[in-house]
């Protein structure tokens, strides 16, 4: 395997991982499958694009065109993506969680509501911005950096490092903080959670905002290579969902593992000359379906078992 393929695979794994982890966390803590994750993706892309339109002249006037300016631009982009994603996450909380979380059949209902949100968002974006694709400014520059003698494109390096850092922060936050513990508690037994002084209604808000922010970051990072468009969220959503499935819905290590597997699969299949890009999606889904038929709970399905043992 050439190093280029390796880096490409890691790059893809990082972006898919961001999507998949968001979906997984939301399922494990709130018990809802967020079909509006793609909409979050697209909306944050557009928000960042809007911000870039406003911020670019401002930053150019203030810092010129040096390294400072590009760092400031990058930071603005990432912050706007995260912020827009978090706000959209809050919106999902208001529409798809708060009114229905006490009603029967919450999983299917929230799925439907988030689907509706997805549908509406795509149409709204189409309505306001038109179907034209937009390019985000390159936040990591265009050059290459050499690490251990391997030349890596700056945007790939930036993506991998940023994602790895953010994931680390998220995982530690979930493991160590009181909020993380509250989220686990809420998932395992809502009534027990309220008896421990945890508000089931409001604990879900940071989770939806966090997963939204992850999708926003994914949008910024993926938009370094692809354009922003109203329907840009569909493919990342489906890939994120299937990877979350592959990893076992709700399992964070499973999602990371699944993202790495799928990322490398894409990179390898894409680099084999007689298969090519055309069979990438095909091979991925075949792989996922095979794994799911052998292990219906995905790579790490432990969590679901605890969920069931509670219901039993």
């Amino acid at each position: 395997m050439s190093t280029v393929t390796l880096i490409h695979g890691l790059n893809l794994a990082a972006i898919y991982g961001l999507m998949a982890i968001g979906i997984s966390i939301l399922w494990s803590s709130v018990g809802m499958i967020n079909m509006a994750h793609g909409a979050t993706f697209a909306a944050s892309g557009y928000a960042a694009w809007q911000v870039s339109l406003i911020a670019q002249p401002l930053i150019a006037a203030w810092l010129g065109t040096g390294l400072d300016a590009s760092i400031a631009m990058g930071a603005t982009m990432i912050a706007s993506g995260l912020g827009a994603g978090a706000i959209f996450g809050g919106l999902i909380f208001l529409l798809a969680y708060l009114p229905i979380h006490e009603k029967a059949n919450f999983a299917v209902r929230s799925l439907i509501v988030t689907l509706a949100i997805n549908l509406a968002t795509v149409q709204l974006l189409l309505y306001f911005f038109g179907p034209r694709q937009r390019a985000l400014p390159k936040i990591f520059g265009l050059g290459r950096t050499e690490i251990l003698g391997i030349p890596i494109r700056n945007d790939q390096l930036g993506t991998i490092v940023a994602t790895a850092l953010l994931m680390l922060v998220v995982v530690i936050w979930l493991k160590r903080s009181r909020k993380g513990l509250e989220i686990t508690a809420m998932m395992q037994n809502p009534e027990g959670a309220v008896l421990s002084g945890i508000s089931v209604r409001w604990t879900a808000l940071p989770v939806t905002m966090l997963t939204g922010a992850l999708a926003g970051l994914a949008a910024i990072l993926l938009s370094q290579t692809v354009f922003v468009s109203p329907t840009a969220g569909a493919l990342p959503l489906i890939k994120g969902l299937t990877i979350a499935l592959l990893g076992g819905l709700g399992s964070i290590p499973g999602a990371i593992m699944g993202a790495i597997l799928i990322g490398f699969l894409e990179a390898i299949v894409g680099s084999i000359s007689f298969l090519g890009q055309r069979y990438v999606l095909f091979s991925q889904f075949l792989f996922i379906i095979t794994v799911l038929i052998i292990r219906p709970r995905g790579l790490g399905g432990l969590l679901d078992q605890t969920r069931e043992s509670r219901n039993a």
């Binding site: 299937t242 819905l249 095909f282 889904f285 379906i289 799911l292």
Partner: peptide
Amino acid sequence: LPSTRLDGLYFALLTLGIVEICRVFVQQ
């Protein structure tokens, strides 16, 4: 075939992937 092994929502998400495969396959 997979519906006997996977339950409810898992299968739903999987079929979503299958739809996407069909689209890409036909287009290419």
